[in-house]
Amino acid sequence: MAISRHKARLLLLGPAGLWYAALLVLPLAVVLVYSFGERAAAGGYAPAFTLAQYANLGSRWAAFKNTLVLAPAGTLAALLIAYPLAYFLAVRVNPKWRTALLVLVIVPFWTSILIRSYAWIYLLGGRGIPTLLADLGLGDWRLINTPFAVLVGIVYGYLPLMVFPVYVSLEKLDKRLLEAAADLGAPPWRSFLQVTLPLSLPGVATGSMLVFILLMGEYLIPQMLGGGKVFFVGNALVDLFLQSRNWAFGSAMSVTLVATMLVVVTLYMRFLKRIGAARDDIGVM
């Protein structure tokens, strides 16, 4: 071979490196630079060096507030629903069916979130569940375009992502520990609280982090099920870039969003370390 190992490596990395430079590093750098600029009179970007955009973030506080309330709330709701299912799959279910049931959980995650959210427009809309409730004499409910609808959409969309890491940590759990707890006279609820739950925390933390991060940048679910009334940062960003064309302010908002995510991830990583989580819990779906 005429070329050295090192050169071959660089050649192989070439296209990927080019892609990361041109479509990841450059765009993110542009966003960072633009966030210190101003809005051009006709829309777009005008060069400047000012912190005005960041100072103005307060005017979009509602979007941040909604995101910072509904993203954790959605994460928690997904966790509460996912945990028992993950427990069932890891501990209770007949191993013969386990793989099939796991695949059934993960499949919806890889199909269009657009169409899955659309399904809930149907179910929560005027002629769906509200009609059913009214027919049953349970009163007049308006569900679509409420924070509740957005929460349902979130749980529906991200449940698979939560089930998986929790399942992995529960599945690894040494069953002899539970037997030991039982032998020592611990009732089932106690061995759950003092053995199972603490040992599954790494999976809980990983799943929560994944879901929370994705929710921070969510646009479709609040757009479709919140009807413009339940606004996330993502919705504000679409508005700023595609309607009012205020690139500088939108860039500042993007930078703030990513910075918030980084802070949360860092805090979470520290938390994971403290509870002695194994890094290999983080799987790719």
Binding site: V31, I213, M216, G217, G234, M261
Partner: peptide, 18 residues
């Protein structure tokens, strides 16, 4: 980073850079 950054930020960044 490419996997973790929200799609919406990737979309915006690519748009304004290009």
């Amino acid at each position: 980073i490419a996997i973790m950054i929200p799609g919406i930020v990737i979309g915006i960044a690519t748009l304004i850079a290009l």
